[in-house]
Amino acid sequence: MNVIESGLGELTQPLDIDEFRRWNREKSRVLVDKLMTEEEAVSRFVYDGCYLGTELYGTVRCPMTLVREVVRQGKKDLRLAGQGVTELDLLLAAGLVKTLDITYIGLEVFGTSRALRQAVESGQVEKVVEWSNGGITWRFKAASMGVPFIPVRSMLGTDTLRYSSAKVVECPFTGQKVCLIPALVLDVGLIHVHQADRYGNARIEGISGFAFEMSRASKRLIISAEEIVDTEEIRRYPDRTIIPYYLVDAVVHAPFGSHPGEMVYLYERDEEQLRGWVEASQTVEGTQAYLHKYVYGVADHEQYMDVVGRDRLASLKAAVEGR
């Protein structure tokens, strides 16, 4: 195939789809109880320098409990697939990110991310490789398909492609130019869901974002769930399972695990705390004070909920809108 253009961005994760197949061959299919604390899950599976991915987006269903634990444990030199808002902002603000495959990091209606600006403009984040949201998700899809790349029609003709690690080739069937998106296999994926059983069978309500693709593109997968359900419930409605247990390494019970973001049908986002973060993150002192109050200064998720306030959390639940 004739390569017409190659993006300048390096592959920040080596591309070896056969190695991924061998990894998956070795991964246990045994039904074992994987329920553990966030402290245990992160210390066992997340490590310095690993390539980390998170799902979903904005303030919605982000794995905040798990990310706060990563920050608490100070896992550093992280390589990140950057399609997120609140959770990636914390990792950047804590200075834990070394390279970034970025699509969008910003605070949506609240504007640009001060943490991103500081970390990238100072050169603290050493490498930045650009992608579109479709592009990075198709990278997960390629990995989940077990192929080294998939052809797409996004990113063509732009600097987004020029500073990515995609390639433009001539289609061997039609002669058209297409963009080849390389597979991205995550060392560790973090996904917050509505329900999971102790083995890791997981369900999501509402939109599923890119949980399907990312869960299948992760070597290690940590699930946090609002509710732990009985396996009988899973087996009765198998059509509702989006992530089967064998993909999962750890299950963490984390009610309000997306706070200060929201969880569809369960609780609204915490507007006040989100605004608090936007303000705090404008300065180094503010950032440190916020991280101390909500991350470093609390032992675990239970204590986090105490600091936020149980009444306040209950009010977010009460504010949830109907279907």
Partner: peptide, 11 residues
């Protein structure tokens, strides 16, 4: 100056 990035805009 670093801005948020493409997000879905390029797509």
């Amino acid at each position: 100056v670093r801005l948020p990035g493409s997000g879905g805009a390029n797509d």
